[in-house]
Amino acid sequence: MDFRFDIVWGYAPLLLKGTGLTVGISFVSIWLGAILGLGIGFGKMSRKSWISWPVSAYVNFFRGTPLIVQALIVHYIVIPPILGTTNAIVAGIVTLSLNSAAYTAEIYRAGIQSIDRGQREAAYSLGMTPGQAMRFVILPQAVKRMIPAFGNEFIVLVKDSAMLAYIAVPELMYWSNAMKGQYLKVVEAYTTAALVYFILTYSLSKLLQFVERRL
């Protein structure tokens, strides 16, 4: 079998651009998903049913439907009325963020509830408000325990972002498909894509391991 390096080389600038977009979209979506997930996570823990019920519905929807379907809905149904036009990159970020939030919410909830309740009681007994107890006592301990789960979620998100090729976001998978389409070379297109995704997720997991050890 002769691997056509020249094809990959020729496509390198586009693949690189696509990789840049994959990294960018993933980075933004990880942040938005983590922030939104914190709110959703607190909503899930709320004892007020008018908060916890819609939040549960949200989580169930995003965990219970395929990401590609979510992306199509956001791209064709949600974004156009808001922006007046379709915008694949925006739709991609919105989809990944909303989807990721449904999962990170659960990570926050589990992390926060794993902290011994004596910690909260000690904070309260010292005059802290629930917000202060959360911010200075519970969250700093919980976040440390959440890091491995967050790491998984971030890696899943990077891999899932490949799905955005199907709403024509010009990211890594999109250009790999284009390469395959132009030269009809399946092996070159998809092994290259696999290698790049692997490098991304592997670096990310190493980075998170580093962060975890530092904390």
């Binding site: 910690q119 009681e121 010292l126």
Partner: peptide, 15 residues
């Protein structure tokens, strides 16, 4: 609560 200190069986120091 700020005026009433409490000491717990299991210390509950912030680790």
């Amino acid at each position: 609560r700020a005026e009433v200190g409490m000491v717990f069986q299991r210390f509950n120091l912030f680790p």
